[in-house]
Amino acid sequence: MYCRTCGALNSEGDAYCKSCGARLLGDEKQHISNGWERSGNVWGLAFGIFLLLLGLAIASGVNVWQSIGAIIMIGIGAAILAGALVGLRRGMK
């Protein structure tokens, strides 16, 4: 049995993960927490892409300050899109 939290392999029937100590059996809260962790990674990915693009724009001399409104709008749009894609994937499962 694989741990939903860290992915470590455990023996069948183990109640707790040997690697990270997370509960393995019949805990709905654990399932919810994994969902949060996954969505945290999606947000991390989206924010990382935003920072990368913003940094490259600043470094290449683009006047970011002038177009800050547009950048914020694109950032919020990308976050909503990422959230919608995650929700869509959950709905398909």
Partner: peptide, 16 residues
Amino acid sequence: MGYFLASIGASMIIRS
């Protein structure tokens, strides 16, 4: 400043 922000972004992208 720009490349520093981009480095943090690249690191976050890799992890996630």
